[in-house]
Design a protein around this nucleic acid. Structure first.
Lengths: 219, 219
DNA sequence: TTTGTATTTTAGCATTCGCTAAAAATTTAA
DNA sequence: TTAAATTTTTAGCGAATGCTAAAATACAAA
């Protein structure tokens, strides 16, 4: 009764696109999965037939509640695994994504429950991404990027994008880690660099691209 | 460069057959993998073409040294995982096999090394099966079954067959666990029951089928 | 040594999941 | 509003991996 890895990857990708406010078009999905758009069209048909999503030709896909539930389950696996790898197995936060990406499809319910227990039912992974609960409730996600945050207001770093190991290593080095207090000191126009002040640290200057991948929450 | 799960399963099955002294014939492999013999013939051709084994039609398969190495790697994954699941994650020994069976194909080198370290580079899994070393050396395996062991001689339980959860739960209940001292007190002819004496316990009577799945080593 | 049985292989087919190239539909822009 | 550009779908193909049924081979027994 298990779904293929491929199917799970599609559902997850579509979920993530939707939750970023984007429409899950053929091209979007193809880019996310690094697959041709023809392949996506094909798969969307199959998934629609399986009632995991609705697909109107040329209009993109929307997950059904079943599809949604499965996507959340995979995401839960992924994020629990990331945290487990970091906290229990001593991985660094730039290494956890790739390992979790493979394992998320192959652990049992029992394994999932076990690591959730060992980690004390955590709500967020090492990058600040929220971990859906067992019954499919997604905790709030930090959406306010540094680039868009207000000047001279106290925030806490809530989340950083987890895809790029290089970036993660850099952010860790300069102390940009979820949970840390932060204030935006200065912005420059035309998407220029942004000066920030971290707790107990001197100021740092971030490029706009970096600043767009770090998200804050109110204190 | 990764091999498919299917290929890894074939190599592992062939390795296990060979190490049990059996010839890896089409039928043997088909039974081990619960797959039709036609499918096996097919796969053997592919694997031969990949230089993972030699296959003479109608004569069975022999792993090449490359094939052997891969089989050992998978077996190492499997057995390390079994032990990890039991020791670190609190699985019972009848639960570990199935979970390990899936995960063995999907963990990275790093993961393998990490659990080996956390477990202090163990040599045997919870069922007493030897764990191949990283460079492909297989520790000795207990081959003397209770059914064939001598009377009134001190042994230690070295290994139990790990396939049958029912059996494992039963064995654990009566105290037949690797590491435990044991003596054969009485055998009955025609494959009848066997009376054993465990350390600190009263005697137990085992059916012949059970006695054939428990293996001993000298003290 | 022939014949019956068991094993193995061959042939042909199905599914999953990717691809490319061409056609169709949609969107954008002149 | 029509032409150009972009996106999506269709058509057809290919590898991996399974299957069944039929043919070939090997083994065992009479």
């Amino acid at each position: 009764m298990g779904l293929s890895q491929s199917i799970e990857d599609y559902l997850k990708a579509i979920f993530v696109l939707q939750s970023e406010g984007e429409v899950a078009t053929t091209t979007n999905i193809a880019n996310a999965l690094k697959v041709s758009s023809a392949s996506v069209t094909n798969m969307l048909k199959r998934l629609a037939k399986m009632n995991l999503l609705e697909h109107e030709a040329y209009k993109g896909a929307k997950l059904t509640s079943t599809g949604n539930k499965i996507a959340l389950e995979i995401l839960r696996h992924h994020r629990l695994l990331e945290l487990y790898l970091k906290e229990v197995m001593g991985y660094s936060w730039d290494e956890v994504h790739d390992e979790a990406e493979k394992l998320e499809h192959h652990i049992s319910e029992q394994f999932e429950e076990r690591i959730a227990e060992l980690l004390n039912h955590p709500t967020h992974d090492p990058h600040g991404d929220p971990i859906p609960t067992k019954d499919g409730v997604m905790p709030a996600i930090a959406r306010l990027s540094i680039a868009k945050a207000e000047l001279n207001k106290p925030y806490i770093i809530g989340r950083v994008k987890d895809q790029n190991s290089e970036l993660l290593r850099y952010l860790e080095k300069i102390g940009v880690i979820p949970g840390v207090k932060i204030e935006i000191v200065e912005k420059t126009p035309f998407s220029g660099p942004i000066k920030i002040l971290l707790e107990d640290k001197e100021t740092q200057v971030l490029g706009h691209a970096v600043a767009s991948e770090v998200y804050l929450v109110d204190t």
